[in-house]
């Protein structure tokens, strides 16, 4: 059994990076505005369908890969401005219900436009095939996913920690009133932050459909593990989400190897353990959401 562990750890890391990027998007939005975005998965699916539609019309993969998340962000900004904004400052249950409703509507809309059937979405030839890693042959597409995600993490970290805007964003999380009093347009901050979260979701969405099939529920299947990642990693921590994601990715992969039947439940067990011994999550900041 042990000889399988190497490949599984590798698989787990890829899966974990995936959960992490979705979780970071969720966490960004949750952190600043207290919105539990249940429609996050729908934006992932939306980006996937947009990319599919573009490629089906002859657009090249790379253009679709960049354009689809951006269009998803534009739609997200409209949704944020018109529907979610009036609910800021209210009990989070309001925005949770709203976004949950949106996700149901979105699923039905996808269904009507593209049908219930899974659509074939194959990555371009340059990304298919496998690469010999010595201990296993690993799909090139998965390595591509890892590369994109690492790049996205780095860009996000740079943005949050080394730009003025990132500084304002982090300040707003700590004390919105103060930063508003100092002359920052917080409404704009909220919108850009929401867009940023959806941009990450959109990128993850397009990557996901190259890996999984594309159907109205594709994004939602990845949403639950992402929520668990946020809880385990701790709200408000970029690194927490990364570690949380990798942790549950590894746990799922290794469980599949040794106790397949428990591979689904293991992430919830991990969550329960973390909540018991460290309720704010592994890297959650005390007081922020504690």
């Amino acid at each position: 059994m042990l000889e399988h562990a190497g490949p599984q750890i590798f698989n787990g890391l890829v899966l974990g990076a995936f959960y992490a990027i979705v979780a970071i998007g969720l966490s960004l939005i949750m952190n600043l505005t207290g919105t539990i975005n249940m429609a996050h998965g729908s934006f992932m699916t939306l980006a996937g369908y947009l990319a599919f539609a573009m490629i089906a019309r002859g657009t090249n993969f790379w253009f679709a890969f960049l354009a689809a998340p951006i269009i998803a962000v534009l739609i997200a900004v409209i949704v944020e401005r018109t529907l979610i904004r009036p609910l800021y400052g209210r009990d989070p249950v309001y925005s949770l219900l709203l976004t949950f409703g949106l996700s149901l509507i979105a699923e039905e809309v996808f269904h009507v436009i593209w049908g219930a059937n899974t659509l074939p979405f194959a990555p371009p030839a340059s990304l298919s095939g496998t690469l010999a890693l010595g201990f296993m042959n690993f799909p090139v597409y998965r390595l591509f996913i890892v590369a994109v995600l690492v790049l996205a993490f780095a860009a996000l970290a740079f943005f949050l920690y080394y730009t003025r805007f990132g500084l304002r964003l982090r300040a707003a999380v700590q004390d919105t009133e103060m930063i508003a009093a100092l002359g920052t347009n917080t409404q704009l901050l909220y919108t850009i932050n929401f867009g940023l979260g959806i941009l990450l979701a959109g990128i993850a969405g397009v990557l996901a459909v190259g890996l999984l099939g594309l159907n109205p529920t594709t994004g939602n299947t990845l949403l639950m593990p992402a929520f668990v990642t946020v809880i385990i990693g701790g709200m408000g921590s970029l690194y927490g989400s990364i570690i949380g994601g990798i942790l549950i990715g590894l746990a799922t992969s290794l469980m599949t190897l040794y106790v397949p039947a428990a591979s689904e439940v293991i992430i919830y067990v991990l969550m329960a353990i973390v909540l018991t011994i460290r309720p704010r999550g592994l890297f959650g900041e005390e007081g922020l959401f504690g």
Binding site: I36, Y88, R90, P92, V93, T176, E177, F227, M235, G290
Partner: peptide, 16 residues
């Protein structure tokens, strides 16, 4: 504008 009242319990309950 003051931030929403939001804590871990609400989140876990909400996510539930």
């Amino acid at each position: 504008m003051s931030g929403p009242t939001f804590n871990r319990r609400t989140f876990v309950k909400g996510a539930g």
